[in-house]
Amino acid sequence: MEEVGTVPVRWRIVLPDRVRIVRLDDAVIVFNPLSWQTHFLNEAAWCVFDALRSGPMTVDALIGECVEGGDGMTSEDRNEWTRILNAHLAELAAMGLVMRDDAVAA
């Protein structure tokens, strides 16, 4: 797991109180109040984003939230899921919807 010093990196929603979300059938559409851009989230990205709505989380904690059987998986599976979730987080970060906690301090 990526760490800053000895503290695991946590991810958070940039403006959790101001981001606008609407669910339309299977689609989740999010309005970013900073960029004024509208984004469509697929099911996986929405799962990650939705989990972060309860507060900042590490990737490990996100695996527990988003992946069925996440608590008892092998280290190989965990590494694979870490890679997948990091990719989704990077996409959400590129949209300006989430950020790393250490980016706040920076």
Binding site: V22, L24, D25, D26, A27, I29, W36, T38, F40
Partner: peptide
């Protein structure tokens, strides 16, 4: 479906952004 309709309607607006 409503998601696709959102795309089509918002993309069709003169002043959405």
């Amino acid at each position: 479906d409503a998601g696709l309709a959102f795309v089509k309607v918002s993309g069709n607006a003169f002043n959405y952004e």
